[in-house]
Design a protein around this nucleic acid. Structure first.
Ligand SMILES: [Mn+2]
Ligand SMILES: [Mn+2]
Ligand SMILES: [Zn+2]
Ligand SMILES: [Zn+2]
Lengths: 151, 151
DNA sequence: ATGATAATGGAAACCATTTTCACTATAGAG
DNA sequence: CTCTATAGTGAAAATGGTTTCCATTATCAT
């Protein structure tokens, strides 16, 4: 029951195999708190295993997103970024604080109570009024980080 | 004091001219409630004035965004979408409800009180804890619209 | 082992957006 | 009004992240 076991189980549950490439990609995602791009992952994986191509990175990221193992974010900075989903990391449910200048992205988990209240009220109300079935939400705050203010 | 007057003033305040192309683009944005892409705008503008090129659409959208006249959204569907900013339309402050299947986007303005409470609390707290200066936020809810459920 | 299917990598294609560059329109000086 | 500097423009080319193609390889069930 090695490190890959958990992922193997997860993927098998969706009819996929845990290959070396997939494990390498999941390793990168598991061992960072950053929000990494396909190319970030490619470069890290490539250092250890140059046989793994960028195409496989993209394919795997799509697969992992479909199976709910990772989340994809388009912060509007050109390239998509990924992180392990809540259920698959020790990260708590969080939202993002983004510096408009340097593009730093901070996960914050505070204000959970106030957030739950608002989200819950809004979701219920929107489901009723617009007859949507809502299953996800996204909250970003934008501003200037302390480094960019003084710099 | 024609229709373009207001825009002329706004742009002049930033050192820009109100040209025919810019007015045409602002007309499109003013006369829709949808979230339109550069190409949407191009096609509409092009019908009346085929001399206006797509490059100018992109350039103008960037300019209008910089001057705060419009807002750009990257909903993650490949192309950016634009709408007049709050101050420049009769739309109220709103957020978005998005169908994951058909990509329909609904503006909602409900829950303003609960939202203000949460936003206010979060912003204050985040500014204090992370020393950011926050000036914007974005909230999206995702789900399936009624048409896509029955379809 | 064998055949069926899943996974892979490199090259090419895709496609929204940006850049380049030569040209045109305009405002402001004189 | 004319001249000139500058702002604005369009077509074509470039860009760059992502996707598709296709021939090859790995893996699973029999
Ligand atoms: Mn995050
Ligand atoms: Mn909107
Ligand atoms: Zn910053
Ligand atoms: Zn729908």
């Amino acid at each position: 029951m090695g490190r890959g076991y958990k992922w193997g189980q997860k993927l098998a549950g969706h009819g996929f195999r845990l290959t070396a490439a997939r494990e390498a990609i999941l390793d990168v995602l598991s061992s960072t708190n950053e929000h990494v791009s396909a190319e970030d992952i490619y470069m890290t994986v490539h250092a250890d295993n140059p046989r793994i191509g960028l195409t496989t990175i993209y394919r795997t990221l799509e697969l992992l997103e479909q199976t709910g193992i990772i989340c994809k974010f388009e912060f509007g900075h050109g390239r998509a970024k990924y992180e392990l989903s809540e259920a698959n990391s020790h990260k708590k449910h969080h939202h993002h604080l983004i510096c408009k200048k340097c593009r730093k992205i901070i996960d914050y988990t505070e204000f959970a109570k106030a957030e739950r209240e608002y989200i819950q009220k809004a979701e219920t109300g929107l489901e009723k009024k617009y007859r949507f079935t809502i299953d996800d939400h996204l909250i970003h705050f934008y501003g200037i980080c302390p480094e960019c203010k003084t710099g």
